[in-house]
């Protein structure tokens, strides 16, 4: 079982290295443990996150790709769908099957035909377009909804600070 997961992760690593999506760099922190990755995601253009680089950690379960990894930003990301502790809340990271709350369709959730690349691309578009139906960070969601200029300003300041400027 482990070898299936390892092989698949290694293949995905290779694919992401040779044909990386724009603005995404990802791979295992140490190849001896293919189950922990670090990814850098570029802030999408035309959003307050533009210009920023957001590091995140992906932890894969031993039964990957049956079950999805978890993803956690390693820097402050003020965003309605990112928990204050950095954990990313996005439907593609939710285990297969139907949402008991009927918020999401099964097709939006994790399934083995998804991939790390798809997760990272989804997260990138999530950064650009927050979904405030089920916010992970209630304060950020409220600010995003009600005080957008303040939200944008805060994000821009965070981005600048994160680059040491």
């Amino acid at each position: 079982m482990n070898s299936v997961a390892s092989k698949r992760l290694f293949q995905e690593y290779k694919h992401l290295t040779t044909d990386p999506p724009e603005g995404i760099t990802a791979g295992p922190i140490n190849e001896d443990d293919l189950f922990i990755w670090e990814a850098l995601i570029q802030g999408p253009e035309g959003t307050p996150y533009e210009g920023g680089i957001f590091p995140a950690e992906l932890k894969f379960p031993k039964d990957y790709p049956l079950m999805p990894p978890t993803m956690r930003f390693l820097a402050d990301v003020w965003h309605p769908n990112v928990y204050p502790n950095g954990v990313v809340c996005i439907s593609i990271l939710h285990p297969p099957g139907d949402d008991p709350n009927h918020y999401e369709q099964a097709s939006e959730r994790w399934s083995p035909i998804q991939s790390v690349e798809k997760i990272l691309i989804s997260v990138m578009s999530m950064i650009a377009e927050p979904n405030d139906e089920s916010p992970a960070n209630v304060d950020a969601a409220r600010m995003w909804r009600e005080r957008r200029p303040e939200f944008d300003k805060r994000v821009r300041a965070d981005v600048r600070k994160s680059l040491g400027l």
Binding site: G27, L40, Q42, G51, R160
Partner: peptide, 27 residues
């Protein structure tokens, strides 16, 4: 394996440094 790790590390560093340069220019 070591070369791959080195390549990934450099890529990440370059991504950050490039972002820093752009931000510096913007500032």
């Amino acid at each position: 394996k070591a070369a791959r790790a080195e390549g990934l590390r450099k890529k990440k560093e370059e991504m950050i440094l490039a972002a820093r340069r752009r931000m510096e220019a913007k500032v």
